[in-house]
Protein backbone atom coordinates (compact mmCIF):
# COMPACT_ATOMS: atom_id res chain seq x y z
CA UNK A 1 0.00 0.00 0.00
CA UNK A 2 1.24 3.48 -0.78
CA UNK A 3 2.87 5.10 2.17
CA UNK A 4 3.61 8.57 0.94
CA UNK A 5 1.80 11.32 -0.83
CA UNK A 6 4.16 11.43 -3.78
CA UNK A 7 3.75 7.73 -4.38
CA UNK A 8 0.06 8.31 -4.21
CA UNK A 9 0.18 10.83 -6.99
CA UNK A 10 2.51 8.62 -8.98
CA UNK A 11 -0.42 6.29 -9.33
CA UNK A 12 -2.11 8.62 -11.75
CA UNK A 13 0.45 9.47 -14.39
CA UNK A 14 -2.28 10.05 -16.94
CA UNK A 15 -3.24 13.46 -15.60
CA UNK A 16 -6.40 14.95 -14.27
CA UNK A 17 -8.45 15.13 -17.45
CA UNK A 18 -7.85 11.53 -18.41
CA UNK A 19 -8.75 10.46 -14.90
CA UNK A 20 -12.01 12.40 -15.00
CA UNK A 21 -12.74 10.75 -18.34
CA UNK A 22 -12.09 7.31 -16.87
CA UNK A 23 -14.39 8.17 -13.99
CA UNK A 24 -17.11 9.24 -16.41
CA UNK A 25 -16.62 5.97 -18.25
CA UNK A 26 -17.04 4.09 -14.97
CA UNK A 27 -20.32 5.92 -14.42
CA UNK A 28 -21.40 5.01 -17.94
CA UNK A 29 -20.58 1.33 -17.45
CA UNK A 30 -22.44 1.29 -14.16
CA UNK A 31 -25.49 3.00 -15.63
CA UNK A 32 -25.42 0.58 -18.57
CA UNK A 33 -25.40 -2.40 -16.19
CA UNK A 34 -28.34 -1.00 -14.33
CA UNK A 35 -30.21 -0.01 -17.48
CA UNK A 36 -29.63 -3.44 -18.92
CA UNK A 37 -31.24 -5.08 -15.91
CA UNK A 38 -34.44 -3.04 -16.07
CA UNK A 39 -35.87 -5.10 -18.89
CA UNK A 40 -39.49 -4.66 -17.92
CA UNK A 41 -38.83 -0.96 -17.90
CA UNK A 42 -37.48 -1.00 -21.42
CA UNK A 43 -40.62 -2.73 -22.61
CA UNK A 44 -42.79 -0.15 -20.86
CA UNK A 45 -40.80 2.64 -22.41
CA UNK A 46 -41.46 1.29 -25.93
CA UNK A 47 -45.17 1.05 -25.15
CA UNK A 48 -45.12 4.55 -23.71
CA UNK A 49 -43.51 6.05 -26.81
CA UNK A 50 -45.93 4.16 -29.02
CA UNK A 51 -48.96 5.41 -27.10
CA UNK A 52 -47.72 8.99 -27.11
CA UNK A 53 -47.12 9.03 -30.85
CA UNK A 54 -50.41 7.21 -31.47
CA UNK A 55 -52.27 9.82 -29.43
CA UNK A 56 -50.96 12.63 -31.58
CA UNK A 57 -51.57 10.59 -34.74
CA UNK A 58 -55.23 10.34 -33.74
CA UNK A 59 -55.40 14.05 -32.98
CA UNK A 60 -53.71 14.63 -36.34
CA UNK A 61 -56.59 12.71 -38.02
CA UNK A 62 -59.02 15.17 -36.48
CA UNK A 63 -57.29 18.16 -38.01
CA UNK A 64 -56.58 16.43 -41.30
CA UNK A 65 -56.72 18.89 -44.17
CA UNK A 66 -56.74 21.87 -41.82
CA UNK A 67 -53.22 21.23 -40.52
CA UNK A 68 -51.54 23.60 -42.94
CA UNK A 69 -53.70 26.47 -41.79
CA UNK A 70 -53.35 25.54 -38.13
CA UNK A 71 -49.58 25.17 -37.94
CA UNK A 72 -49.13 28.33 -39.86
CA UNK A 73 -47.31 27.56 -43.09
CA UNK A 74 -43.83 28.20 -41.80
CA UNK A 75 -43.52 24.60 -40.54
CA UNK A 76 -44.99 22.81 -43.59
CA UNK A 77 -48.27 20.96 -43.74
CA UNK A 78 -47.75 17.67 -41.94
CA UNK A 79 -48.96 17.66 -38.31
CA UNK A 80 -47.17 14.36 -37.53
CA UNK A 81 -43.84 15.80 -38.65
CA UNK A 82 -44.60 18.88 -36.59
CA UNK A 83 -45.39 16.89 -33.48
CA UNK A 84 -42.66 14.22 -33.77
CA UNK A 85 -39.99 16.93 -33.67
CA UNK A 86 -41.46 18.23 -30.41
CA UNK A 87 -41.86 14.80 -28.78
CA UNK A 88 -38.32 13.75 -29.66
CA UNK A 89 -36.74 16.99 -28.50
CA UNK A 90 -38.85 17.20 -25.35
CA UNK A 91 -37.41 13.93 -24.08
CA UNK A 92 -33.89 15.31 -24.41
CA UNK A 93 -34.63 18.66 -22.93
CA UNK A 94 -36.67 17.23 -20.10
CA UNK A 95 -33.81 14.92 -19.12
CA UNK A 96 -31.15 17.62 -19.17
CA UNK A 97 -33.33 20.00 -17.24
CA UNK A 98 -34.78 17.68 -14.61
CA UNK A 99 -32.21 14.98 -14.05
CA UNK A 100 -29.54 17.01 -12.23
CA UNK A 101 -31.93 17.96 -9.42
CA UNK A 102 -33.38 14.46 -9.18
CA UNK A 103 -29.96 12.86 -8.99
CA UNK A 104 -28.63 15.34 -6.47
CA UNK A 105 -31.69 14.77 -4.31
CA UNK A 106 -31.19 11.03 -4.53
CA UNK A 107 -27.53 11.20 -3.60
CA UNK A 108 -28.52 13.35 -0.61
CA UNK A 109 -31.04 10.80 0.59
CA UNK A 110 -28.92 7.72 -0.01
CA UNK A 111 -25.71 9.25 1.25
CA UNK A 112 -23.57 8.91 -1.88
CA UNK A 113 -22.75 12.62 -2.08
CA UNK A 114 -20.21 12.26 0.76
CA UNK A 115 -18.60 9.38 -1.05
CA UNK A 116 -18.45 11.14 -4.37
CA UNK A 117 -16.85 14.20 -2.80
CA UNK A 118 -14.38 12.00 -0.94
CA UNK A 119 -12.91 10.66 -4.15
CA UNK A 120 -10.40 12.26 -6.47
CA UNK A 121 -12.84 13.81 -8.95
CA UNK A 122 -14.15 17.31 -9.51
CA UNK A 123 -17.45 18.24 -7.89
CA UNK A 124 -19.04 18.40 -11.34
CA UNK A 125 -18.01 14.96 -12.48
CA UNK A 126 -20.81 13.17 -10.59
CA UNK A 127 -23.36 15.41 -12.31
CA UNK A 128 -22.00 14.52 -15.73
CA UNK A 129 -21.66 10.92 -14.60
CA UNK A 130 -25.31 10.78 -13.67
CA UNK A 131 -26.16 12.18 -17.10
CA UNK A 132 -24.65 9.14 -18.79
CA UNK A 133 -27.82 7.39 -17.74
CA UNK A 134 -29.77 9.80 -19.90
CA UNK A 135 -27.58 9.14 -22.88
CA UNK A 136 -28.41 5.45 -22.51
CA UNK A 137 -31.98 5.67 -21.47
CA UNK A 138 -33.46 8.78 -23.01
CA UNK A 139 -31.45 9.64 -26.08
CA UNK A 140 -32.29 6.39 -27.93
CA UNK A 141 -35.91 7.37 -27.62
CA UNK A 142 -35.32 9.96 -30.31
CA UNK A 143 -34.76 7.22 -32.86
CA UNK A 144 -37.76 5.27 -31.68
CA UNK A 145 -40.06 8.27 -31.72
CA UNK A 146 -38.79 9.03 -35.21
CA UNK A 147 -39.22 5.44 -36.37
CA UNK A 148 -42.79 5.22 -35.05
CA UNK A 149 -43.59 8.60 -36.57
CA UNK A 150 -42.16 7.84 -39.99
CA UNK A 151 -43.03 4.17 -40.43
CA UNK A 152 -46.39 3.97 -38.65
CA UNK A 153 -47.96 7.39 -38.58
CA UNK A 154 -46.87 9.14 -41.74
CA UNK A 155 -44.38 11.76 -40.55
CA UNK A 156 -42.01 12.92 -43.27
CA UNK A 157 -38.58 14.50 -42.81
CA UNK A 158 -35.84 15.89 -44.99
CA UNK A 159 -32.24 15.42 -44.03
CA UNK A 160 -30.24 17.86 -46.12
CA UNK A 161 -29.82 20.22 -43.13
CA UNK A 162 -29.09 17.49 -40.61
CA UNK A 163 -25.79 18.99 -39.41
CA UNK A 164 -27.42 22.32 -38.70
CA UNK A 165 -30.23 20.50 -36.92
CA UNK A 166 -27.74 18.65 -34.73
CA UNK A 167 -25.99 21.92 -33.96
CA UNK A 168 -29.22 23.54 -32.79
CA UNK A 169 -30.04 20.46 -30.74
CA UNK A 170 -26.64 20.53 -29.05
CA UNK A 171 -27.04 24.20 -28.14
CA UNK A 172 -30.50 23.64 -26.71
CA UNK A 173 -29.27 20.67 -24.68
CA UNK A 174 -26.42 22.72 -23.25
CA UNK A 175 -28.76 25.54 -22.28
CA UNK A 176 -31.21 23.07 -20.72
CA UNK A 177 -28.37 21.47 -18.76
CA UNK A 178 -27.42 24.93 -17.49
CA UNK A 179 -30.96 25.38 -16.19
CA UNK A 180 -30.75 21.85 -14.80
CA UNK A 181 -27.65 22.74 -12.78
CA UNK A 182 -29.26 25.93 -11.50
CA UNK A 183 -32.21 23.81 -10.47
CA UNK A 184 -29.90 21.28 -8.79
CA UNK A 185 -28.03 23.99 -6.91
CA UNK A 186 -31.32 25.21 -5.44
CA UNK A 187 -31.39 21.91 -3.55
CA UNK A 188 -28.55 23.23 -1.41
CA UNK A 189 -28.82 26.99 -1.87
CA UNK A 190 -32.55 27.33 -1.19
CA UNK A 191 -32.59 24.22 0.95
CA UNK A 192 -35.46 22.71 -1.00
CA UNK A 193 -35.39 19.13 0.13
CA UNK A 194 -38.96 18.13 -0.38
CA UNK A 195 -41.80 19.14 -2.64
CA UNK A 196 -41.37 20.97 -5.90
CA UNK A 197 -38.20 22.70 -6.94
CA UNK A 198 -39.27 26.10 -8.33
CA UNK A 199 -36.77 26.57 -11.20
CA UNK A 200 -37.60 23.23 -12.69
CA UNK A 201 -41.32 23.67 -12.05
CA UNK A 202 -41.49 27.06 -13.76
CA UNK A 203 -39.34 26.26 -16.76
CA UNK A 204 -40.39 22.68 -17.38
CA UNK A 205 -43.88 22.26 -16.02
CA UNK A 206 -45.24 25.73 -16.82
CA UNK A 207 -43.37 27.47 -19.62
CA UNK A 208 -42.18 24.52 -21.69
CA UNK A 209 -45.46 22.65 -21.48
CA UNK A 210 -47.77 25.55 -22.19
CA UNK A 211 -45.86 28.12 -24.16
CA UNK A 212 -42.98 26.54 -26.07
CA UNK A 213 -45.22 25.47 -28.95
CA UNK A 214 -44.73 21.75 -28.65
CA UNK A 215 -48.23 20.72 -29.69
CA UNK A 216 -49.34 23.91 -31.43
CA UNK A 217 -47.45 26.87 -32.88
CA UNK A 218 -46.87 29.71 -30.42
CA UNK A 219 -48.90 31.98 -32.70
CA UNK A 220 -52.12 30.59 -31.20
CA UNK A 221 -51.16 32.24 -27.89
CA UNK A 222 -51.90 35.84 -26.91
CA UNK A 223 -49.03 38.14 -27.80
CA UNK A 224 -47.70 38.69 -24.23
CA UNK A 225 -47.45 34.93 -23.69
CA UNK A 226 -45.61 34.58 -27.01
CA UNK A 227 -42.98 36.97 -25.65
CA UNK A 228 -42.66 34.92 -22.48
CA UNK A 229 -42.19 31.84 -24.63
CA UNK A 230 -39.13 33.55 -26.11
CA UNK A 231 -37.42 33.26 -22.72
CA UNK A 232 -36.82 29.50 -22.80
CA UNK A 233 -34.62 27.43 -25.13
CA UNK A 234 -37.40 24.97 -26.01
CA UNK A 235 -39.24 27.51 -28.15
CA UNK A 236 -36.22 28.23 -30.35
CA UNK A 237 -35.09 24.67 -30.88
CA UNK A 238 -38.62 23.53 -31.81
CA UNK A 239 -38.83 26.38 -34.29
CA UNK A 240 -35.41 25.75 -35.80
CA UNK A 241 -35.72 22.00 -36.13
CA UNK A 242 -39.15 22.17 -37.71
CA UNK A 243 -37.86 24.62 -40.29
CA UNK A 244 -34.84 22.41 -41.01
CA UNK A 245 -36.45 18.96 -40.90
CA UNK A 246 -40.07 19.32 -42.09
CA UNK A 247 -40.45 19.12 -45.86
CA UNK A 248 -42.40 22.14 -47.00
CA UNK A 249 -41.25 24.28 -44.09
CA UNK A 250 -39.96 27.70 -44.97
CA UNK A 251 -36.75 29.11 -43.59
CA UNK A 252 -37.63 32.76 -43.96
CA UNK A 253 -41.15 33.24 -42.60
CA UNK A 254 -40.90 34.61 -39.05
CA UNK A 255 -43.12 32.97 -36.40
CA UNK A 256 -41.88 34.01 -32.96
CA UNK A 257 -42.47 37.65 -32.02
CA UNK A 258 -38.74 38.17 -31.57
CA UNK A 259 -38.16 36.91 -35.11
CA UNK A 260 -40.65 39.49 -36.34
CA UNK A 261 -38.89 42.30 -34.51
CA UNK A 262 -35.25 41.51 -35.29
CA UNK A 263 -34.02 42.19 -38.82
CA UNK A 264 -32.30 38.79 -39.17
CA UNK A 265 -33.52 35.56 -40.70
CA UNK A 266 -35.53 33.43 -38.21
CA UNK A 267 -32.86 30.72 -38.06
CA UNK A 268 -30.22 33.27 -37.21
CA UNK A 269 -32.43 34.60 -34.44
CA UNK A 270 -32.83 31.03 -33.11
CA UNK A 271 -29.08 30.46 -33.26
CA UNK A 272 -28.26 33.72 -31.52
CA UNK A 273 -30.86 33.19 -28.82
CA UNK A 274 -29.74 29.62 -28.09
CA UNK A 275 -26.08 30.61 -28.07
CA UNK A 276 -26.74 33.49 -25.71
CA UNK A 277 -28.73 31.26 -23.36
CA UNK A 278 -26.00 28.64 -23.37
CA UNK A 279 -23.30 31.22 -22.71
CA UNK A 280 -25.23 32.64 -19.76
CA UNK A 281 -26.96 29.62 -18.25
CA UNK A 282 -24.18 27.03 -18.45
CA UNK A 283 -21.53 29.06 -16.57
CA UNK A 284 -24.18 30.31 -14.16
CA UNK A 285 -25.19 26.70 -13.53
CA UNK A 286 -21.59 25.72 -12.76
CA UNK A 287 -21.04 28.67 -10.43
CA UNK A 288 -24.30 28.21 -8.51
CA UNK A 289 -23.77 24.49 -8.22
CA UNK A 290 -20.28 25.03 -6.82
CA UNK A 291 -21.69 27.53 -4.34
CA UNK A 292 -24.42 25.09 -3.41
CA UNK A 293 -21.88 22.42 -2.53
CA UNK A 294 -19.87 24.92 -0.48
CA UNK A 295 -22.98 25.99 1.42
CA UNK A 296 -23.79 22.38 2.14
CA UNK A 297 -20.23 21.87 3.40
CA UNK A 298 -20.73 24.75 5.81
CA UNK A 299 -24.13 23.64 7.01
CA UNK A 300 -23.37 19.95 7.09
CA UNK A 301 -26.21 19.12 4.73
CA UNK A 302 -24.41 17.18 2.00
CA UNK A 303 -26.35 14.11 3.00
CA UNK A 304 -29.10 13.51 5.50
CA UNK A 305 -26.91 10.86 7.10
CA UNK A 306 -24.54 12.07 9.76
Amino acid sequence: MASSVSEQQGRHPEGALVREARTLWAFAVREYRIWQSYRVNQLMWLVNIFVTTLLFFLMGLMVKGKAAALIGGAYGTNYMSFIVVAIALSTFLYTNLSDPYTRIARSYYNGTMDLLLLSPMSIFTPLFGFMTKSILDDYPRLLIVGAFGVFLFGAVFRFQHILAALGFTALALAAAFGIGMISASSFYLLNIKRGTEPVRFIVQQLLATLLAGAYYPVTVLPKPLQWIACLIPHTYVFDALRRLMDPGARLTVPVLPIQQVLPWSPLVVDAVALSAMTLILLPLGFVLYGQGIEKARRNGTLTRWQ
Binding site: V5, Q8, N110, G111, T112, D114, L115, L118, S119, P120, M121, W305, Q306
Partner: peptide, 13 residues
Protein backbone atom coordinates in the same frame (compact mmCIF):
# COMPACT_ATOMS: atom_id res chain seq x y z
CA UNK B 1 -9.30 13.27 -2.76
CA UNK B 2 -6.62 11.71 -0.55
CA UNK B 3 -8.38 10.50 2.57
CA UNK B 4 -10.81 7.65 3.09
CA UNK B 5 -13.87 7.91 5.31
CA UNK B 6 -16.23 5.17 6.38
CA UNK B 7 -19.41 6.48 7.99
CA UNK B 8 -21.58 4.28 10.20
CA UNK B 9 -24.31 4.72 7.64
CA UNK B 10 -21.96 4.18 4.69
CA UNK B 11 -23.92 1.12 3.66
CA UNK B 12 -26.76 3.35 2.53
CA UNK B 13 -24.51 4.48 -0.30
Amino acid sequence: AEVSLVAPTADVG
